[in-house]
Design a protein around this nucleic acid. Structure first.
Length: 1002
RNA sequence: GCCGAAGUGGCGGAAUGGCAGACGCGCCGGACUCAAAAUCCGGUCCCCGCAAGGGGGUGUGGGUUCAAGUCCCACCUUCGGUACCA
């Protein structure tokens, strides 16, 4: 093996590491701990993608580095293995999803192992393993057993829930219902996407334009009993505790926005008596609108209450039926049906035009007694606030559009600042009319301009016309002339005794007033909804829940959790995995499994399964004690290892996975099962790796079309502004050249070409398979390239030539030490046990410094650059110091561990007389990280630029510690500078020792 | 629309406010070779110039500063997130 051959070196070291359990992490170490976590993968059938090893390599480098820095490093890997693709495969092929899943896991494990990551494989977890999901089910039981105490701001055992006396008086059943209504895991009727044709419930992303993604069948939203988790109770803490973690600010912001806290008031509007159909409500829809005869709204702008000129309820609002007058009932019902057919997305994204219908009823504005019409419209969502709004068209963009569409009154109550008013269309009209000219030409006036004129005529004719006064007058009295809506803060007008107040003061005062009048109260609302936690699927964790049934098999409403001793509750074997054809989940088909008799009572098992998030919510805890069958984790181990010191993964999990995990963690914390409030101390998102750069040209009926006239999304190209489809021609890099900002075809002038890197996808055919890269260049090259591409967080395109570049670097490193002309692995004669020269010594220490700093700042690409420079320096030497090379291998080892181990062994183990020559199996994994000596970093002399007026004119070679005045003196006397300064006035001299000298001359 | 990130050679990228383009790719030239590959050496931001040298240059336009890729203001483009949340 004379030349560098990763195919031999890499498997050899992987075997050594595996057999001697080099990376087994002891729990009983007195070293400081460091927990480095990767987001574990979903083992898809497609195998590993080059995007996976990006984050894994980064964490592996840090894990290896931290080990050498004396940390006890926990670095585990596992599988997020429940999920839809396996179930889909099972439906199609009729095999058990477990089979497919296990096969995929085996592939992933094999692929990951070939990359030489230093995982402690004894801690591997698999979310589909009963030994694992036993504890997922147990955590669900903890959620089920917990209620949120708002006074203590803490989740507590349900047994500690105070039962109000009136409930107590009604007996056991009432108490049970009361408790069930307070649990963090509860059941409710929730609208789901039901597709009759496919006979299944679909996830939101499987529904496109109200049709199923597969087959294009109609999808309707229908209510179904579901499990929900009361994450909203934790909204405030999920928000607050973001301050305590070291995460990228944009990710924190995304979480804050998702939680969506807004402060305002709830206000009750009485119904106008004449129009109310008083009927007691029979169902509880979970809305906070409690009494009939009232509509409760939430608003963040209670200060605009005087401007509320109508109300809007969401079409699903429970009061709609009661409020609809006979004359309106046909249109209202038709509108409700139409709205039910639309998905949330359609209602918002696609519907640019506002729609709605009048119910026929009126409500009373509490501040002025005005009777205002009540409409329903789908721009009001039932799931936010109270499902009803007071519409203030003058100061809310949506209400403004709605009012314009349906010609509803607009009533200004906030005076905008002058700057806003002077940018309006009306102000422009005033300008055009030539304010101050007494007699504009009435013949040519536009309708609106005539109205403006009429309104301000007396002011125009006054002695001193003031345009600002006029625009203010127009805003107050003729707001319908304005084409824009003012939704910001300003000064109150038309608001009775509140006039003149600022928005902030008004909000405070009116909220107090409403509270005093018992018409409203201060209220905080969150966008965050309770977490819909059940799926109508087979391949997920079964719920450890029994539903009591009566003699006829009908549910009594009583629910019974399984006890820990009954866990894990396994998935039943079923004949097939096809949907049942009705909204019942596939588990309903498992007859023998379904029915349970316990203590003489009959039960039916819960047939929903948990979503994929469940297993991934807590896997970082299981790694700490992966095989424990007595507890989800030993408390001592939790205490030792938590929190995760560094968590690396894709930004696609910025919101949901991280939010859900944090929520579960907090519940476990409240219940005393984990010792800290936040699981992930530091978070880093790796950027996506795109496919190779592609050059695309376009043709229409044989003629080239320049790229700026084309709308190209990667798949289809349309001539801009038309729907003319263009021919897409993939062209070679060699046939294009860059002019200015874009690329052009070399052979055809002025034909611009699209140059872009796309997301890797099967259909595009630009997926890079890591197996192939390893096959051709080895794992060390793949690792190094992924890190050398650019900053970890950045999105960057793949380039196979770049892999070759780092491969060549590794070859050079090999040849630096190993004689590649021989058959056996032997050191080059140039490698000797000598002290390095001063320059090399300095270079080495400087490199150690650069690599160390780079690792501490996760700047892997610059660390590699530094080592390349060191390698280039050493290559030039005919005698190479062994100690320098050994240090080099230590700092290289986290990046290219196989190669570093091999060379390290060649350098440390004396050659044996026969056989392989050198090559022991002593690992460098726990060698101490090299230190650098600051005093050796300074060169004997340094170059200092000399500038005149900020432009470099000369360079001085001086001692590194030269003082300020000596440096200035040297600069003045420099032979290039001297003549340039002659005859000039030196206004100022800036001297930064060790950096530069700058003469400012006149 | 709103929010976020980013715009630096042919490409990926580097630069505590202090010599822009480190390192790598690609390209050009040379050495080795019968030849090629591999390897090694040199060059490579743009413009003017044989050269010495000079001028320009970090998306655009302004500003702060002795000095700006870096700080401030406005704008443009690309990518990502989000979607009537009252």
């Amino acid at each position: 093996m004379p030349s560098y051959n990763p195919k031999v070196v890499e498997p050899r070291w992987q075997k050594v590491w595996e057999e001697s359990k080099t990376f087994r992490t002891p729990d009983d170490s007195d070293k400081p701990k460091f927990y480095i976590l990767d987001m574990f993968p979903y083992p898809s059938g497609a195998g590993l993608h080059v995007g996976h090893p990006e984050g894994y390599t980064a964490t592996d480098i840090l894990a290896r580095y931290k080990r050498m820095r004396g940390f006890n490093v926990l670095h585990p890997m596992g599988w997020d293995a429940f999920g839809l693709p396996a179930e889909q495969y099972a439906i199609e092929k009729g095999v058990h999803p477990r089979e497919f899943t296990q096969k995929n896991i085996a592939t992933f494990r094999r692929q990951i192992k070939t990359l030489g990551f230093s995982y402690d494989w004894d801690r591997e977890v698999d979310t589909t393993d009963p030994g694992y999901f036993k504890w997922t089910q147990w955590i669900f039981l903890v959620l089920f057993d917990t209620w949120y105490d708002r006074k203590l701001n803490k989740g507590r055992p349900i047994s500690e829930l105070p039962i109000p006396a009136d409930v107590q008086a009604q007996g056991d059943k009432a108490i049970r219902t009361y408790r069930d209504g307070k649990r963090l895991a509860y059941q409710a009727e929730v609208a789901v996407n039901w597709c009759q044709a496919l006979g299944t419930v679909l996830a939101n992303e499987e529904v496109i334009d109200g049709k199923s993604e597969r087959g294009n069948h109609p999808v309707v939203r229908m209510p179904l009993r579901q499990w929900l988790l009361r994450i909203t109770d934790y909204a405030e803490r999920l928000l607050d505790d973001l301050a305590s973690v070291n995460w990228p600010e944009p990710i924190k912001k995304m979480q804050r926005d998702w939680i969506g806290k807004s402060e305002g008031a709830e206000i009750d509007f009485a119904l106008s008596p004449s129009s109310v159909v008083l009927r007691p409500r029979t169902t509880d829809h979970g809305l906070r609108t409690t009494d009939y005869g009232l509509i409760r709204v939430f608003t963040t702008r209670p200060d605009t209450l005087f401007g509320a000129t109508y109300m809007v309820l969401s079409p699903e609002h429970p009061l709609v039926a009661d409020l609809t007058t006979p004359a309106q009932s046909a249109v209202v019902e038709a509108y409700q049906v139409a709205a039910a057919k639309k998905s949330d997305l359609e209602r918002t994204e696609l519907a640019k035009k506002k729609t709605g219908v009048f119910t026929g009823s009126y409500a009373i504005n509490p501040v002025n007694g005005a009777s205002i019409p009540i409409w329903i419209a789908d721009y009001v969502l039932v799931s936010y606030g109270t499902g009803a709004i007071m519409a203030v068209p003058a100061h809310d963009e949506r209400d403004f559009q709605f009012a314009q569409t349906f010609d509803l009154p607009i009533h200004p109550v906030v005076l905008p600042p002058r700057a806003w008013l002077e940018k309006t269309n009306v102000f422009a009209m005033l300008d055009k009319l030539g304010a101050g000219q007494a007699n504009p030409n009435r013949e040519t006036l536009h309708y609106n301009e005539a109205a403006v004129l009429k309104s301000v005529m007396p002011m125009l004719q006054s002695a001193d016309p003031d345009r600002y006064k006029m625009i203010e007058h127009l805003y107050r009295h003729d707001i319908e002339l304005f084409s824009e809506c003012f939704a910001d803060e300003g000064i109150a007008i038309n608001s009775g005794s509140f006039n003149g107040q600022t928005t902030a003061d008004f909000k405070r005062d009116i909220t107090d007033w409403l509270a005093k009048e018992r018409q409203g109260k201060r209220k905080i609302n969150y966008k965050l909804r309770d977490w819909l936690f059940s799926r109508q699927r087979y391949w997920g964790e079964p719920f450890p829940i029994l539903h009591e049934v009566d003699a006829e098999g009908n549910p009594t409403g009583a629910i019974e959790p399984l006890s820990l001793g009954d866990l894990p509750l396994l998935l039943p074997e079923v004949e097939d995995y096809k949907p049942t054809g009705n909204p019942e989940p596939p588990l309903a088909k498992a007859k023998g499994w379904l029915d349970v008799t316990k203590d003489g009572k009959r039960y039916r098992r819960e047939t929903n399964t948990m979503p994929q998030w469940a297993g991934s919510c807590w896997y970082y805890l299981r790694y700490l004690d992966a095989k424990n069958d007595q507890a989800f984790c030993d408390p001592a181990k939790l205490k030792q290892w938590l929190p995760v010191d560094l968590y690396v993964g894709g930004a696609e999990h910025a919101v949901l996975h991280l939010l859900y995990s944090r929520f579960w963690h907090k519940v476990l914390f409240d219940r005393g099962h984990v010792p800290c409030a936040e699981p992930f101390q530091r978070l880093v998102n790796q950027g996506m790796i795109l496919g190779e750069m592609e050059f695309t040209a376009f043709k229409e009926t044989g003629d080239w079309v320049s790229a700026e006239q084309v709308n190209f999304d990667g798949d289809t190209a349309l001539l801009k502004g038309t729907d003319v489809k263009l021919e897409i021609v993939k062209i070679d890099e060699d046939t294009v050249e860059k002019k200015g900002d874009s690329f052009f075809r070399k052979d055809v002038p002025n034909i611009r070409v699209d140059a872009r890197a796309f997301k890797m996808s099967k259909s595009r055919g630009n997926v890079i398979n890591p197996d192939k890269v390893v096959e051709q260049y080895g794992a060390d090259s793949l690792r190094l390239y992924e890190m050398f591409m650019g900053p970890l967080e950045a999105v960057k395109p793949w380039n196979m030539r770049g892999v070759e570049g780092v491969y060549r670097f590794l070859n050079r490193v090999w040849r630096l030490v190993i004689d590649d002309r021989l058959e056996t692995v032997k050191l080059l004669d140039a490698v000797q046990d000598v002290e390095p020269d001063k320059e090399t010594q300095r270079f080495l220490h400087h490199t150690v410094q650069r690599v160390t700093i780079a690792l501490d700042t996760l700047s892997f690409n610059t660390a590699i650059a530094a080592m390349m420079e060191l390698s280039n320096h050493l290559t030039k030497q005919t005698v190479r110091s062994k100690s320098v090379l050994k240090t080099f291998m230590l700092i290289l080892s986290p990046f290219a561990p196989h190669l570093a181990e091999e060379i390290w062994n060649a350098l440390t183990v004396p050659p044996s007389p026969s056989g392989r020559g050198v090559g022991g199996e002593g690992t460098l994994v726990y060698e101490p990280w090299p230190t650098f000596d600051e005093s050796l970093l300074n060169a004997d002399s340094i170059e200092v630029p000399v500038q005149i007026n900020g432009k470099v004119k000369s360079k001085l070679t001086v001692a590194p510690d030269i003082d300020k005045s000596a440096l200035e003196e040297a600069a003045r006397n420099d032979e290039k500078i001297k003549p340039l300064l002659e005859g000039k006035t030196i206004k100022k001299v800036i001297v930064v020792p060790g950096k530069l000298v700058n003469f400012v001359v006149g």
